[in-house]
């Protein structure tokens, strides 16, 4: 196997363009996903049975089917129907960019909702009771106690989900988008140097992952700052 390193440097600007689109897809779909997940999770933890049904079915569908199938259903599937092609939604649904954003957002929302549900349910009972004892209303309690605590609890798992979405976003290349993977495949179609170009793309993915991990470290520290010692504990052993 002869390695041709030049090909990486020649095509680096294109790969970085692709990386930018990948970041954009993950970021925008991630933000929409978080917003969607909030009502889903709250309905899911509701004590009313009928409110639980929709988020249960939603989460069951989006966690239970592959992302590739979902993106094909939205992009190739929906466009088969005249009703959709003639509807007001078509200007959005005809764009592969929006199809990818919509699919990724719906997909990640299901996972985040489930993380959020778990986090809400694992808040120590005493904290909720204390809030109630202070006479907080449910919306106030949600804003001041439940959600901030839940975000802190779910943050490490959510960081994981964002990284999974970063890698899942490679599927955007199957609907003509030139994200990092799509760009790499298009370059390889001309140069026939899969090892070199995929290696370069892999390293760019690693760098983006590292940035995401760093960002979530900071977010974790922010949301869980009450759990950290203000000052370095000293001589703890000596006191015993």
């Amino acid at each position: 196997m002869n390695w041709t390193w030049d090909v990486i440097f020649e095509n680096l600007p294109k790969l970085l363009d692709g990386a930018l689109l990948t970041l954009e897809l993950v970021l925008i779909s991630g933000l929409i996903g978080v917003m969607l997940s909030l009502p889903l999770a709250l309905m899911r933890v509701s004590k009313r049975r009928w409110l639980q049904a929709f988020p249960f079915a939603y989460i069951f569908f989006f966690r239970g089917t592959p992302l590739l199938i979902q993106i094909f259903l939205v992009y190739y599937g929906a466009s088969q129907f005249d009703v959709i092609r003639e509807s007001a939604l078509w200007p959005i649904l005809r764009e592969p960019y929006w199809c990818a954003i919509i699919t990724f957002a719906l997909h990640t929302a299901a996972y985040i909702a489930e993380l959020l549900r778990g986090a809400i349910q694992s808040i120590p009972k005493g904290e909720i009771e204390a809030a109630k004892a202070l006479g907080m209303s449910y919306p106030l309690m949600l804003r001041r106690i439940i959600l901030p605590r839940a975000f802190g609890i779910m943050m490490p798992a959510y960081g994981n989900e964002v990284i999974l979405m970063l890698k899942g976003s490679a599927l955007a290349s199957t609907i003509t988008l030139l994200d990092l993977t799509g760009m790499a495949r298009t370059i390889i179609a001309r140069t026939y140097t899969p090892l070199e170009i995929f290696l370069a793309a892999g390293i760019i993915y690693l760098i983006i992952s590292a940035l995401i991990i760093g960002l979530f470290r900071m977010l974790e520290n922010h949301f869980n700052r009450h759990q950290q010692a203000r000052e370095k504990p000293q001589d703890l052993d000596a006191q015993h």
Binding site: Y76, Q80, R85
Partner: peptide, 18 residues
Amino acid sequence: VKLYDTQDNAYLDLASGR
């Protein structure tokens, strides 16, 4: 220019009007 993984997918998008 739009590039597809398979010829069939290109036909599908021609039919969809994209």
